[in-house]
Computed example of a mutant assay.
Amino acid sequence: MTTDDLLELLRWHLPEIRASLSPEQFARFQGSVHRLRAAGDDTRAVRGALREVRLALRSLPRENELRRKLDQFRSGGAAPPAVLPDTDRLAELIRLLESVDWPTLAPASAAIARAVRQRLLTAPARGPEQLTGAAAADPAGAGLIRLSDPERGDRYPDFQFDPDTGEPRPVVQRINRMLLSDQDPWGAADWWLGGNTWLRAAPAALVGQVPDTRLTEAAAALLGGGGW
């Protein structure tokens, strides 16, 4: 397992980590991740920070899936390329850590967030190798929701694509940008795939079935805080 593999696991399991640790323990974990960023490309400092990350998570239950995988992670003998973290992956993990006041988040809420992610990943989706055209070159620039699956890698929910051409649907691209899907892909995916009182159905099921303006108005109502 490389450092980047570890970062993906941490990013995916953040709600579960918070649900299993006390606020003080979680704060220690946060600090270890920030030390990993501060280590830069100093291989020795990176190894030290990675040890701190693992130690901070020793309080996870032994039967916990992440705990078992962490026990398999050893950076000491790994070659430098496998030790140094990808800066973008590390930045994304830190962005998630800073986007929520995790230490004060109730464990029950964190567990719910984990369950929501698992539900969203059961929806039909395609991998990056199935993207075409501009979407393949720059999925984020194309306004696509990208969900990270710890087992399958990046997943792009199918409702975003025209079934005939395979190209992104313009209305989905527009609404994704309204929902800031580049910053909160899980929240945007939950809006599309969850029940919607105003539309009386999941918005994703209505793409191509109702006027685009109706979907756009529903998203606007959410952002405006009214109509629900």
Rank of each mutant, 00 (worst) to 15 (best):
E129Y: 12
L93N: 02
E98R: 14
A45D: 15
P150V: 10
P81V: 09
E167V: 08
A82R: 07
G48P: 05
A56H: 03
L199W: 01
I175P: 02
A115G: 11
L206T: 07
A220K: 12
A113F: 10
D149H: 08
R68H: 08
I112M: 05
G153Q: 02
A111H: 15
A27K: 09
R28P: 00
L222M: 14
T165M: 05
W102M: 09
G48M: 08
L222C: 11
P128K: 08
R126F: 03
A123N: 05
A111V: 10
L66P: 03
S109L: 14
A115W: 05
S181P: 06
L120P: 10
R58H: 04
A137K: 14
A219D: 04
R44D: 10
R37C: 00
R62E: 13
P203I: 01
L10V: 08
G226T: 06
K69D: 09
L222F: 11
W12L: 04
V100S: 07
W192D: 11
G195W: 11
L179P: 12
P170Q: 06
L66M: 02
L96S: 09
T3M: 09
V83G: 02
R169L: 06
L66G: 01
Y156L: 01
A134H: 13
A218L: 06
D158T: 06
G187C: 12
G48T: 08
F26A: 09
Q30L: 14
I145G: 01
V46H: 08
A49I: 13
R74G: 08
Q72R: 15
A78S: 06
L84N: 01
H13M: 07
P81K: 04
L222T: 08
G40L: 03
Y156H: 03
W186T: 15
A204K: 03
P170T: 03
M1N: 10
D182E: 14
F73C: 05
G31H: 13
A205T: 15
V116H: 11
A201M: 02
P23G: 00
G141Y: 03
T132P: 01
S99E: 14
T197P: 00
R177V: 10
M1V: 10
P23E: 03
F161L: 07
G143I: 02
A136L: 08
A111M: 12
D5H: 05
L60M: 05
P124F: 06
F26N: 05
R146M: 14
R89T: 00
D158L: 14
P103W: 05
S59F: 14
A201I: 00
A106L: 12
A189F: 11
A79I: 10
L199K: 03
P15R: 09
Q25P: 01
W12F: 09
E98V: 00
N176K: 07
R67W: 04
G224H: 09
A49P: 07
T213F: 12
H13I: 00
R18I: 00
D164W: 04
L84H: 04
